[in-house]
């Protein structure tokens, strides 16, 4: 099996099986464009730490996909889902870097997983809680906020009830 080297923006090299690296469509395209003898692929938009995490995903998913003979599809899917669930339990900051890398490297499965992870941080939360979680600032002017409140008041009902309880 051929191995290649992926070089992060801070110059760290990661040796990885080409099969796993090619879960990234960006890497796959770069390999097609570069000369066949090239073994080092520079990735100027991904830092060492994030690249390591991305490659962990690619390696694990390639390994699980290759286990075609010894486990059923259903079991493999369950295993992957359980692994993904553990994998995506990272800090908000890390999740942000991971989603940016997944987008740049074009790893569809990882991108979807990251989006789901971010969506889970938002789901069921109050606007204030979301602002705190993502470090956002409320930048409405009073009439603008009043207009939003009038339109979306129903969405806050449950939150009020929960507060009462």
């Amino acid at each position: 099996m051929r191995s290649i080297i992926l070089r992060s923006c801070d110059g760290a090299d990661h040796v990885v099986a080409q099969e796993a690296a090619c879960l990234s469509k960006t890497v796959q395209s770069l390999l097609e464009e570069l000369e066949e003898s090239t073994l080092v692929v520079p990735l100027p938009n991904v830092c060492d730490c994030t690249l390591r995490k991305v490659l962990q995903y690619c390696t694990q998913h390639t390994a699980l996909q290759r286990r075609v003979t010894d486990i059923s599809d259903e079991l493999r899917t369950r295993e992957m889902e359980a692994w993904d669930k553990r994998y995506i339990m990272v800090s908000t900051d890390e999740l942000y870097h991971l989603v940016m890398a997944a987008h740049y490297l074009n790893v569809p499965g990882l991108l979807e997983l990251c989006c789901e992870g971010i969506a889970n941080l938002i789901r069921g939360k109050s606007p204030e809680h979301v602002r705190q979680c993502f470090g956002l600032v409320k930048n409405f002017e009073a009439p603008e906020e009043e207009n939003i409140r009038r339109t979306n008041l129903w969405a806050l009902v449950d939150e009020k009830e929960q507060a009462k309880k």
Binding site: L111, C115, I118, P127, R131, K138, A155, L156
Partner: peptide, 24 residues
Amino acid sequence: VTAMIFDRLPFDDRARGCFVNRTW
């Protein structure tokens, strides 16, 4: 990517998202 995230949310979470800030 932002659209992918919001697409995964139920409509009431998205409606609540309107209260977060101007961009949301």
